[in-house]
Design a binder for these strands. Sequence first.
DNA 1: ACCTGAACACCGTTCAAGT
DNA 2: ACCTGAACACCGTTCAAGT
Lengths: 244, 244
Amino acid sequence: MTTQTRKAREVAEREELLIDLAIEIIEQHGFAQLTMDKLTARSEYSKGTVYNHFSSKEDLWCALCARGLRIQRSMFGKLAQFQGNSREAILALSFGYELFTLCYPTLTMVSLRVMSPAVFEKASPARIKVLSETEDEMVQMLKGMIEVAMDKGELSRRYQDNLYQITFAIWAMSFGSVTIMRNSTPAPCLERIDHDSAVLTNASIVLDGLQWQPYSWEFDYHASWQRIAKEMFADELAQLSQRS
Amino acid sequence: MTTQTRKAREVAEREELLIDLAIEIIEQHGFAQLTMDKLTARSEYSKGTVYNHFSSKEDLWCALCARGLRIQRSMFGKLAQFQGNSREAILALSFGYELFTLCYPTLTMVSLRVMSPAVFEKASPARIKVLSETEDEMVQMLKGMIEVAMDKGELSRRYQDNLYQITFAIWAMSFGSVTIMRNSTPAPCLERIDHDSAVLTNASIVLDGLQWQPYSWEFDYHASWQRIAKEMFADELAQLSQRS
DNA sequence: ACCTGAACACCGTTCAAGT
DNA sequence: ACCTGAACACCGTTCAAGT
Protein backbone atom coordinates (compact mmCIF):
# COMPACT_ATOMS: atom_id res chain seq x y z
CA MET A 1 0.00 0.00 0.00
CA THR A 2 2.67 2.53 1.02
CA THR A 3 4.92 1.23 -1.75
CA GLN A 4 2.06 1.69 -4.18
CA THR A 5 1.45 5.30 -3.23
CA ARG A 6 5.20 5.95 -3.32
CA LYS A 7 5.38 4.43 -6.78
CA ALA A 8 2.39 6.43 -7.95
CA ARG A 9 3.98 9.60 -6.63
CA GLU A 10 7.22 8.83 -8.45
CA VAL A 11 5.35 8.25 -11.69
CA ALA A 12 3.49 11.55 -11.28
CA GLU A 13 6.75 13.36 -10.60
CA ARG A 14 8.35 11.83 -13.65
CA GLU A 15 5.43 12.99 -15.75
CA GLU A 16 5.84 16.56 -14.53
CA LEU A 17 9.54 16.34 -15.35
CA LEU A 18 8.78 15.13 -18.88
CA ILE A 19 6.34 18.00 -19.36
CA ASP A 20 9.02 20.43 -18.18
CA LEU A 21 11.41 18.98 -20.74
CA ALA A 22 8.81 19.22 -23.51
CA ILE A 23 8.30 22.92 -22.75
CA GLU A 24 12.07 23.42 -22.80
CA ILE A 25 12.31 21.84 -26.25
CA ILE A 26 9.55 24.04 -27.67
CA GLU A 27 11.02 27.20 -26.16
CA GLN A 28 14.54 26.45 -27.34
CA HIS A 29 13.89 24.98 -30.77
CA GLY A 30 10.33 25.75 -31.75
CA PHE A 31 7.07 23.93 -31.88
CA ALA A 32 7.85 21.57 -34.75
CA GLN A 33 10.91 20.25 -32.92
CA LEU A 34 8.90 18.69 -30.12
CA THR A 35 9.08 15.03 -31.11
CA MET A 36 8.85 11.89 -29.06
CA ASP A 37 12.41 11.09 -30.16
CA LYS A 38 13.83 14.36 -28.86
CA LEU A 39 11.80 14.21 -25.65
CA THR A 40 13.17 10.72 -25.01
CA ALA A 41 16.72 11.81 -25.80
CA ARG A 42 16.52 14.77 -23.42
CA SER A 43 15.13 12.61 -20.62
CA GLU A 44 16.93 9.75 -18.91
CA TYR A 45 14.22 7.27 -19.94
CA SER A 46 13.45 5.19 -22.99
CA LYS A 47 10.82 5.58 -25.66
CA GLY A 48 8.69 2.87 -24.12
CA THR A 49 8.59 4.66 -20.80
CA VAL A 50 7.66 7.95 -22.43
CA TYR A 51 4.85 6.14 -24.25
CA ASN A 52 3.79 4.75 -20.90
CA HIS A 53 3.02 8.31 -19.83
CA PHE A 54 1.69 9.71 -23.08
CA SER A 55 -0.29 7.34 -25.25
CA SER A 56 0.46 9.43 -28.35
CA LYS A 57 1.92 12.73 -29.41
CA GLU A 58 -1.54 14.27 -29.21
CA ASP A 59 -1.80 13.01 -25.64
CA LEU A 60 1.48 14.77 -24.86
CA TRP A 61 0.05 18.01 -26.29
CA CYS A 62 -3.02 17.62 -24.11
CA ALA A 63 -0.77 17.08 -21.09
CA LEU A 64 0.93 20.40 -21.84
CA CYS A 65 -2.48 21.98 -22.20
CA ALA A 66 -3.56 20.53 -18.83
CA ARG A 67 -0.48 22.06 -17.23
CA GLY A 68 -1.52 25.42 -18.66
CA LEU A 69 -5.07 25.10 -17.37
CA ARG A 70 -3.76 24.19 -13.92
CA ILE A 71 -1.69 27.37 -13.85
CA GLN A 72 -4.68 29.39 -15.02
CA ARG A 73 -6.83 27.91 -12.30
CA SER A 74 -4.36 28.84 -9.60
CA MET A 75 -4.19 32.40 -10.96
CA PHE A 76 -7.98 32.56 -10.93
CA GLY A 77 -8.04 31.31 -7.37
CA LYS A 78 -5.75 34.13 -6.32
CA LEU A 79 -7.78 36.70 -8.28
CA ALA A 80 -11.07 35.59 -6.75
CA GLN A 81 -9.86 37.20 -3.52
CA PHE A 82 -9.54 40.62 -5.12
CA GLN A 83 -11.46 43.28 -3.19
CA GLY A 84 -13.71 45.42 -5.34
CA ASN A 85 -17.19 45.80 -6.77
CA SER A 86 -18.73 42.97 -8.80
CA ARG A 87 -17.64 44.37 -12.16
CA GLU A 88 -14.08 44.68 -10.95
CA ALA A 89 -14.19 41.04 -9.87
CA ILE A 90 -15.05 40.02 -13.43
CA LEU A 91 -12.33 42.27 -14.81
CA ALA A 92 -9.86 40.56 -12.50
CA LEU A 93 -10.54 37.24 -14.23
CA SER A 94 -10.13 38.80 -17.70
CA PHE A 95 -6.90 40.31 -16.47
CA GLY A 96 -5.80 36.90 -15.23
CA TYR A 97 -6.41 35.26 -18.57
CA GLU A 98 -4.43 37.90 -20.42
CA LEU A 99 -1.61 37.72 -17.89
CA PHE A 100 -1.46 33.97 -18.33
CA THR A 101 -1.02 34.32 -22.09
CA LEU A 102 1.75 36.86 -21.54
CA CYS A 103 3.59 34.81 -18.92
CA TYR A 104 3.15 31.48 -20.69
CA PRO A 105 3.07 32.11 -24.45
CA THR A 106 4.19 28.57 -25.18
CA LEU A 107 1.39 26.95 -23.19
CA THR A 108 -1.09 29.38 -24.74
CA MET A 109 -0.04 28.38 -28.24
CA VAL A 110 -0.34 24.74 -27.26
CA SER A 111 -3.92 25.18 -26.06
CA LEU A 112 -4.84 26.80 -29.35
CA ARG A 113 -3.37 23.93 -31.30
CA VAL A 114 -5.03 21.36 -29.10
CA MET A 115 -8.46 22.90 -29.63
CA SER A 116 -9.68 20.56 -32.32
CA PRO A 117 -11.71 17.37 -32.38
CA ALA A 118 -8.90 15.70 -34.33
CA VAL A 119 -6.56 16.07 -31.35
CA PHE A 120 -9.10 15.14 -28.69
CA GLU A 121 -9.86 11.93 -30.52
CA LYS A 122 -6.27 10.74 -30.23
CA ALA A 123 -5.74 11.74 -26.58
CA SER A 124 -6.43 9.34 -23.71
CA PRO A 125 -9.88 9.62 -22.10
CA ALA A 126 -8.32 10.24 -18.67
CA ARG A 127 -6.45 13.23 -20.03
CA ILE A 128 -9.58 14.68 -21.66
CA LYS A 129 -11.41 14.32 -18.38
CA VAL A 130 -8.79 16.34 -16.49
CA LEU A 131 -8.91 19.01 -19.19
CA SER A 132 -12.64 19.55 -19.16
CA GLU A 133 -12.87 19.35 -15.38
CA THR A 134 -10.23 22.02 -14.87
CA GLU A 135 -11.84 24.21 -17.48
CA ASP A 136 -15.23 23.73 -15.89
CA GLU A 137 -13.94 24.75 -12.46
CA MET A 138 -12.92 28.09 -13.91
CA VAL A 139 -16.21 28.54 -15.71
CA GLN A 140 -18.03 27.81 -12.41
CA MET A 141 -15.92 30.43 -10.66
CA LEU A 142 -16.92 33.01 -13.26
CA LYS A 143 -20.55 31.91 -13.17
CA GLY A 144 -20.55 32.16 -9.37
CA MET A 145 -19.55 35.82 -9.56
CA ILE A 146 -22.27 36.51 -12.09
CA GLU A 147 -24.83 34.80 -9.87
CA VAL A 148 -23.97 36.93 -6.86
CA ALA A 149 -24.18 40.13 -8.90
CA MET A 150 -27.47 39.05 -10.46
CA ASP A 151 -28.95 38.39 -7.03
CA LYS A 152 -27.92 41.87 -5.94
CA GLY A 153 -29.55 43.32 -9.07
CA GLU A 154 -26.29 44.82 -10.37
CA LEU A 155 -26.91 43.86 -14.00
CA SER A 156 -29.77 43.43 -16.45
CA ARG A 157 -32.25 40.69 -15.62
CA ARG A 158 -32.77 39.92 -19.29
CA TYR A 159 -30.47 36.91 -19.17
CA GLN A 160 -31.53 35.83 -15.67
CA ASP A 161 -32.71 32.37 -16.74
CA ASN A 162 -29.57 31.69 -18.68
CA LEU A 163 -26.53 32.62 -16.65
CA TYR A 164 -24.37 30.35 -18.79
CA GLN A 165 -25.12 32.64 -21.72
CA ILE A 166 -23.53 35.58 -19.87
CA THR A 167 -20.63 33.42 -18.75
CA PHE A 168 -20.06 32.39 -22.33
CA ALA A 169 -20.18 35.98 -23.61
CA ILE A 170 -17.52 37.18 -21.17
CA TRP A 171 -15.35 34.13 -21.78
CA ALA A 172 -15.65 34.35 -25.57
CA MET A 173 -14.70 38.02 -25.60
CA SER A 174 -11.60 37.46 -23.46
CA PHE A 175 -10.49 34.46 -25.45
CA GLY A 176 -11.19 36.09 -28.82
CA SER A 177 -9.42 39.35 -27.98
CA VAL A 178 -6.30 37.73 -26.62
CA THR A 179 -6.06 35.06 -29.31
CA ILE A 180 -6.38 37.48 -32.21
CA MET A 181 -3.94 39.94 -30.69
CA ARG A 182 -1.20 37.43 -30.03
CA ASN A 183 -1.54 34.92 -32.83
CA SER A 184 -3.18 36.42 -35.87
CA THR A 185 -1.40 37.31 -39.07
CA PRO A 186 0.07 40.81 -38.82
CA ALA A 187 -3.07 42.71 -39.92
CA PRO A 188 -2.92 46.48 -40.34
CA CYS A 189 -6.04 46.78 -38.18
CA LEU A 190 -4.28 45.28 -35.20
CA GLU A 191 -1.47 47.79 -35.31
CA ARG A 192 -3.91 50.61 -34.73
CA ILE A 193 -5.32 49.42 -31.43
CA ASP A 194 -3.80 49.90 -28.01
CA HIS A 195 -2.63 46.44 -27.06
CA ASP A 196 -2.24 47.31 -23.39
CA SER A 197 -5.88 48.22 -22.89
CA ALA A 198 -7.69 46.27 -25.62
CA VAL A 199 -8.76 43.42 -23.34
CA LEU A 200 -10.02 45.86 -20.70
CA THR A 201 -11.88 47.91 -23.32
CA ASN A 202 -13.51 44.87 -24.90
CA ALA A 203 -14.52 43.45 -21.52
CA SER A 204 -15.98 46.84 -20.62
CA ILE A 205 -18.07 46.91 -23.80
CA VAL A 206 -19.54 43.51 -22.94
CA LEU A 207 -20.24 44.46 -19.32
CA ASP A 208 -21.87 47.72 -20.42
CA GLY A 209 -23.97 45.67 -22.83
CA LEU A 210 -25.13 43.56 -19.88
CA GLN A 211 -25.99 46.83 -18.08
CA TRP A 212 -23.62 45.85 -15.35
CA GLN A 213 -23.36 48.70 -12.82
CA PRO A 214 -21.49 50.95 -12.45
CA TYR A 215 -21.10 51.61 -16.19
CA SER A 216 -17.68 52.21 -17.72
CA TRP A 217 -18.37 55.96 -17.90
CA GLU A 218 -19.29 56.12 -14.21
CA PHE A 219 -16.20 54.46 -12.77
CA ASP A 220 -12.46 54.43 -13.43
CA TYR A 221 -11.85 50.83 -14.49
CA HIS A 222 -8.42 51.70 -15.85
CA ALA A 223 -7.49 52.36 -12.25
CA SER A 224 -9.00 49.00 -11.28
CA TRP A 225 -6.96 47.27 -13.96
CA GLN A 226 -3.77 48.77 -12.56
CA ARG A 227 -4.81 47.96 -9.02
CA ILE A 228 -5.37 44.32 -9.95
CA ALA A 229 -1.91 44.22 -11.46
CA LYS A 230 -0.24 45.81 -8.47
CA GLU A 231 -2.08 44.06 -5.67
CA MET A 232 -2.25 40.58 -7.18
CA PHE A 233 0.67 40.08 -9.53
CA ALA A 234 3.46 42.47 -8.65
CA ASP A 235 6.02 39.64 -8.84
CA GLU A 236 4.87 38.18 -12.15
CA LEU A 237 4.73 41.58 -13.83
CA ALA A 238 8.20 42.54 -12.62
CA GLN A 239 9.54 39.30 -14.04
CA LEU A 240 7.73 39.94 -17.32
CA SER A 241 9.09 43.45 -17.86
CA GLN A 242 12.57 42.21 -16.99
CA ARG A 243 12.33 39.56 -19.69
CA SER A 244 11.56 41.96 -22.56
CA MET B 1 3.78 37.11 -73.64
CA THR B 2 0.58 35.17 -74.37
CA THR B 3 2.39 31.91 -73.69
CA GLN B 4 3.57 33.34 -70.40
CA THR B 5 0.10 34.31 -69.25
CA ARG B 6 -1.22 30.93 -70.39
CA LYS B 7 1.51 29.20 -68.44
CA ALA B 8 0.82 31.31 -65.37
CA ARG B 9 -2.87 30.50 -65.63
CA GLU B 10 -2.13 26.80 -65.87
CA VAL B 11 0.11 26.97 -62.82
CA ALA B 12 -2.61 28.80 -60.88
CA GLU B 13 -5.20 26.22 -61.93
CA ARG B 14 -2.93 23.40 -60.87
CA GLU B 15 -2.49 25.04 -57.50
CA GLU B 16 -6.26 25.23 -57.00
CA LEU B 17 -6.49 21.58 -57.94
CA LEU B 18 -3.83 20.63 -55.41
CA ILE B 19 -5.68 22.58 -52.72
CA ASP B 20 -8.89 20.73 -53.64
CA LEU B 21 -7.06 17.43 -53.24
CA ALA B 22 -5.60 18.48 -49.90
CA ILE B 23 -9.10 19.29 -48.60
CA GLU B 24 -10.32 15.92 -49.86
CA ILE B 25 -7.57 14.12 -47.97
CA ILE B 26 -8.38 15.92 -44.70
CA GLU B 27 -12.10 15.30 -45.05
CA GLN B 28 -11.70 11.64 -45.90
CA HIS B 29 -8.86 10.65 -43.59
CA GLY B 30 -8.40 13.38 -41.01
CA PHE B 31 -6.04 16.20 -40.41
CA ALA B 32 -2.95 14.18 -39.53
CA GLN B 33 -3.15 12.30 -42.82
CA LEU B 34 -2.48 15.37 -44.93
CA THR B 35 1.15 14.74 -45.89
CA MET B 36 3.17 15.90 -48.86
CA ASP B 37 3.58 12.23 -49.81
CA LYS B 38 -0.15 11.58 -49.93
CA LEU B 39 -0.89 14.83 -51.70
CA THR B 40 1.67 13.91 -54.35
CA ALA B 41 0.27 10.40 -54.70
CA ARG B 42 -3.29 11.66 -55.13
CA SER B 43 -2.22 14.20 -57.77
CA GLU B 44 -0.73 13.39 -61.14
CA TYR B 45 2.45 15.31 -60.37
CA SER B 46 5.70 14.61 -58.60
CA LYS B 47 6.99 15.71 -55.22
CA GLY B 48 9.23 18.29 -56.81
CA THR B 49 6.30 19.92 -58.58
CA VAL B 50 4.24 20.00 -55.42
CA TYR B 51 7.16 21.66 -53.64
CA ASN B 52 7.27 24.13 -56.51
CA HIS B 53 3.83 25.31 -55.42
CA PHE B 54 4.18 25.01 -51.65
CA SER B 55 7.58 25.76 -50.21
CA SER B 56 6.82 23.67 -47.13
CA LYS B 57 4.02 21.90 -45.38
CA GLU B 58 3.28 25.06 -43.43
CA ASP B 59 3.02 26.91 -46.72
CA LEU B 60 0.44 24.37 -47.87
CA TRP B 61 -1.57 25.00 -44.68
CA CYS B 62 -1.45 28.72 -45.34
CA ALA B 63 -2.67 28.10 -48.88
CA LEU B 64 -5.68 26.25 -47.47
CA CYS B 65 -6.23 29.12 -45.07
CA ALA B 66 -6.07 31.61 -47.96
CA ARG B 67 -8.73 29.61 -49.79
CA GLY B 68 -10.93 29.89 -46.69
CA LEU B 69 -10.42 33.63 -46.41
CA ARG B 70 -11.30 34.05 -50.09
CA ILE B 71 -14.59 32.24 -49.54
CA GLN B 72 -15.29 34.36 -46.46
CA ARG B 73 -14.60 37.52 -48.43
CA SER B 74 -17.06 36.56 -51.13
CA MET B 75 -19.71 35.80 -48.49
CA PHE B 76 -19.05 39.17 -46.90
CA GLY B 77 -19.39 40.87 -50.27
CA LYS B 78 -22.81 39.31 -50.73
CA LEU B 79 -23.87 40.21 -47.19
CA ALA B 80 -22.82 43.84 -47.56
CA GLN B 81 -25.81 44.24 -49.86
CA PHE B 82 -28.29 43.23 -47.18
CA GLN B 83 -31.03 45.83 -46.71
CA GLY B 84 -31.61 46.84 -43.11
CA ASN B 85 -30.59 49.26 -40.37
CA SER B 86 -26.95 49.70 -39.44
CA ARG B 87 -27.05 47.19 -36.59
CA GLU B 88 -28.57 44.58 -38.86
CA ALA B 89 -25.75 45.18 -41.32
CA ILE B 90 -23.19 44.31 -38.63
CA LEU B 91 -25.21 41.26 -37.62
CA ALA B 92 -25.15 40.13 -41.23
CA LEU B 93 -21.35 39.94 -41.10
CA SER B 94 -21.41 37.98 -37.83
CA PHE B 95 -23.93 35.68 -39.41
CA GLY B 96 -21.63 35.27 -42.40
CA TYR B 97 -18.69 34.28 -40.28
CA GLU B 98 -20.72 31.67 -38.40
CA LEU B 99 -22.18 30.32 -41.64
CA PHE B 100 -18.69 29.99 -43.06
CA THR B 101 -17.56 27.88 -40.11
CA LEU B 102 -20.63 25.67 -40.52
CA CYS B 103 -20.26 25.23 -44.28
CA TYR B 104 -16.48 24.80 -44.22
CA PRO B 105 -15.50 23.16 -40.93
CA THR B 106 -12.29 21.83 -42.43
CA LEU B 107 -11.06 25.22 -43.60
CA THR B 108 -12.09 26.72 -40.25
CA MET B 109 -9.99 24.18 -38.38
CA VAL B 110 -7.09 24.90 -40.69
CA SER B 111 -7.22 28.63 -39.97
CA LEU B 112 -7.14 27.95 -36.26
CA ARG B 113 -4.09 25.76 -36.62
CA VAL B 114 -2.34 28.24 -38.86
CA MET B 115 -2.78 31.04 -36.34
CA SER B 116 0.65 30.88 -34.79
CA PRO B 117 3.94 32.66 -35.38
CA ALA B 118 5.63 29.27 -35.74
CA VAL B 119 3.61 28.55 -38.87
CA PHE B 120 3.87 32.02 -40.37
CA GLU B 121 7.64 31.86 -40.09
CA LYS B 122 7.82 28.80 -42.30
CA ALA B 123 5.36 30.00 -44.96
CA SER B 124 6.47 31.93 -48.03
CA PRO B 125 6.29 35.74 -47.78
CA ALA B 126 4.02 35.91 -50.85
CA ARG B 127 1.51 33.64 -49.15
CA ILE B 128 1.53 35.67 -45.94
CA LYS B 129 0.91 38.81 -47.96
CA VAL B 130 -2.20 37.34 -49.61
CA LEU B 131 -3.46 36.21 -46.21
CA SER B 132 -3.16 39.54 -44.46
CA GLU B 133 -4.47 41.49 -47.44
CA THR B 134 -7.61 39.36 -47.70
CA GLU B 135 -8.18 39.59 -43.98
CA ASP B 136 -7.68 43.33 -44.08
CA GLU B 137 -10.25 43.76 -46.85
CA MET B 138 -12.86 42.20 -44.59
CA VAL B 139 -11.82 44.30 -41.61
CA GLN B 140 -12.13 47.41 -43.80
CA MET B 141 -15.61 46.36 -44.87
CA LEU B 142 -16.65 46.06 -41.21
CA LYS B 143 -14.93 49.32 -40.33
CA GLY B 144 -16.71 51.08 -43.21
CA MET B 145 -20.09 50.10 -41.79
CA ILE B 146 -19.10 51.35 -38.35
CA GLU B 147 -17.95 54.64 -39.85
CA VAL B 148 -21.25 55.26 -41.60
CA ALA B 149 -23.25 54.51 -38.44
CA MET B 150 -20.94 56.72 -36.36
CA ASP B 151 -21.45 59.62 -38.78
CA LYS B 152 -25.19 59.21 -38.46
CA GLY B 153 -24.88 59.20 -34.66
CA GLU B 154 -26.35 55.72 -34.27
CA LEU B 155 -23.89 54.60 -31.60
CA SER B 156 -21.90 56.00 -28.68
CA ARG B 157 -19.30 58.61 -29.59
CA ARG B 158 -17.00 57.39 -26.82
CA TYR B 159 -14.85 55.39 -29.26
CA GLN B 160 -15.10 57.93 -32.07
CA ASP B 161 -11.34 58.50 -32.34
CA ASN B 162 -10.59 54.82 -32.39
CA LEU B 163 -12.90 53.04 -34.79
CA TYR B 164 -10.47 50.14 -35.02
CA GLN B 165 -11.15 49.47 -31.36
CA ILE B 166 -14.84 48.89 -32.13
CA THR B 167 -14.00 46.83 -35.19
CA PHE B 168 -11.74 44.69 -33.06
CA ALA B 169 -14.38 44.23 -30.35
CA ILE B 170 -17.01 42.98 -32.82
CA TRP B 171 -14.51 40.77 -34.60
CA ALA B 172 -13.09 39.30 -31.39
CA MET B 173 -16.54 38.44 -30.07
CA SER B 174 -17.59 36.66 -33.28
CA PHE B 175 -14.34 34.77 -33.53
CA GLY B 176 -14.25 33.85 -29.84
CA SER B 177 -17.87 32.64 -29.72
CA VAL B 178 -17.64 30.49 -32.82
CA THR B 179 -14.22 29.06 -32.01
CA ILE B 180 -15.12 28.01 -28.48
CA MET B 181 -18.45 26.53 -29.54
CA ARG B 182 -17.05 24.40 -32.34
CA ASN B 183 -13.61 23.42 -31.14
CA SER B 184 -13.37 23.49 -27.39
CA THR B 185 -13.24 20.43 -25.16
CA PRO B 186 -16.76 19.25 -24.35
CA ALA B 187 -17.32 21.53 -21.33
CA PRO B 188 -20.54 21.22 -19.34
CA CYS B 189 -21.02 24.98 -19.64
CA LEU B 190 -21.26 24.77 -23.40
CA GLU B 191 -24.05 22.22 -23.29
CA ARG B 192 -26.27 24.66 -21.48
CA ILE B 193 -26.28 27.42 -24.07
CA ASP B 194 -28.43 27.64 -27.16
CA HIS B 195 -25.98 27.02 -29.98
CA ASP B 196 -28.31 28.38 -32.63
CA SER B 197 -28.58 31.83 -31.13
CA ALA B 198 -25.36 32.20 -29.12
CA VAL B 199 -23.52 34.18 -31.80
CA LEU B 200 -26.50 36.52 -32.25
CA THR B 201 -26.86 36.98 -28.49
CA ASN B 202 -23.17 37.70 -27.97
CA ALA B 203 -23.06 40.14 -30.88
CA SER B 204 -26.15 41.86 -29.44
CA ILE B 205 -24.48 42.26 -26.05
CA VAL B 206 -21.48 43.95 -27.69
CA LEU B 207 -23.66 46.23 -29.83
CA ASP B 208 -25.77 47.17 -26.79
CA GLY B 209 -22.53 47.95 -24.98
CA LEU B 210 -21.61 50.32 -27.79
CA GLN B 211 -25.05 51.92 -27.37
CA TRP B 212 -25.79 51.08 -30.96
CA GLN B 213 -29.44 51.98 -31.75
CA PRO B 214 -31.97 50.49 -31.77
CA TYR B 215 -31.11 48.42 -28.66
CA SER B 216 -31.74 44.69 -28.58
CA TRP B 217 -34.87 45.23 -26.45
CA GLU B 218 -36.30 47.72 -28.92
CA PHE B 219 -36.08 45.66 -32.07
CA ASP B 220 -36.58 42.03 -33.10
CA TYR B 221 -33.08 41.00 -34.15
CA HIS B 222 -34.01 37.32 -34.07
CA ALA B 223 -36.26 38.15 -37.00
CA SER B 224 -33.34 39.93 -38.69
CA TRP B 225 -31.14 36.88 -38.19
CA GLN B 226 -33.71 34.69 -39.91
CA ARG B 227 -34.25 37.25 -42.66
CA ILE B 228 -30.49 37.32 -43.36
CA ALA B 229 -30.51 33.55 -43.63
CA LYS B 230 -33.51 33.43 -45.94
CA GLU B 231 -32.70 36.34 -48.20
CA MET B 232 -28.95 35.79 -48.54
CA PHE B 233 -28.16 32.12 -48.08
CA ALA B 234 -31.23 30.04 -48.82
CA ASP B 235 -29.20 27.67 -51.01
CA GLU B 236 -26.31 27.19 -48.61
CA LEU B 237 -28.60 26.54 -45.65
CA ALA B 238 -30.70 24.03 -47.55
CA GLN B 239 -27.52 22.18 -48.47
CA LEU B 240 -26.35 22.28 -44.86
CA SER B 241 -29.54 20.84 -43.36
CA GLN B 242 -29.52 18.15 -46.02
CA ARG B 243 -26.01 17.09 -45.02
CA SER B 244 -26.83 16.47 -41.35
C1' DA C 1 5.19 -5.20 -13.28
C1' DC C 2 7.84 -2.16 -15.50
C1' DC C 3 11.50 -0.78 -18.65
C1' DT C 4 14.34 -1.02 -22.92
C1' DG C 5 15.71 -0.02 -27.60
C1' DA C 6 15.78 -2.28 -32.09
C1' DA C 7 12.74 -2.45 -35.88
C1' DC C 8 9.22 -0.78 -39.19
C1' DA C 9 6.56 2.00 -42.01
C1' DC C 10 6.21 6.55 -43.17
C1' DC C 11 7.30 11.62 -43.63
C1' DG C 12 9.50 16.30 -45.11
C1' DT C 13 12.83 18.05 -47.99
C1' DT C 14 16.55 18.12 -51.42
C1' DC C 15 18.80 17.82 -55.76
C1' DA C 16 21.20 15.45 -59.64
C1' DA C 17 19.50 13.78 -63.78
C1' DG C 18 16.17 14.09 -67.37
C1' DT C 19 13.00 16.47 -70.91
C1' DA D 1 12.78 26.31 -67.70
C1' DC D 2 10.41 22.96 -65.60
C1' DC D 3 9.64 18.28 -63.94
C1' DT D 4 11.01 13.80 -61.85
C1' DG D 5 11.73 10.45 -58.26
C1' DA D 6 15.54 8.32 -55.76
C1' DA D 7 17.87 9.28 -51.63
C1' DC D 8 18.47 10.91 -46.81
C1' DA D 9 17.71 12.00 -42.23
C1' DC D 10 14.19 11.77 -39.08
C1' DC D 11 9.65 10.60 -36.82
C1' DG D 12 5.62 7.97 -34.41
C1' DT D 13 4.54 3.67 -32.69
C1' DT D 14 5.10 -1.20 -31.43
C1' DC D 15 6.66 -5.17 -29.06
C1' DA D 16 9.85 -9.10 -28.03
C1' DA D 17 13.36 -9.47 -24.84
C1' DG D 18 15.25 -8.14 -20.49
C1' DT D 19 15.25 -6.91 -15.32
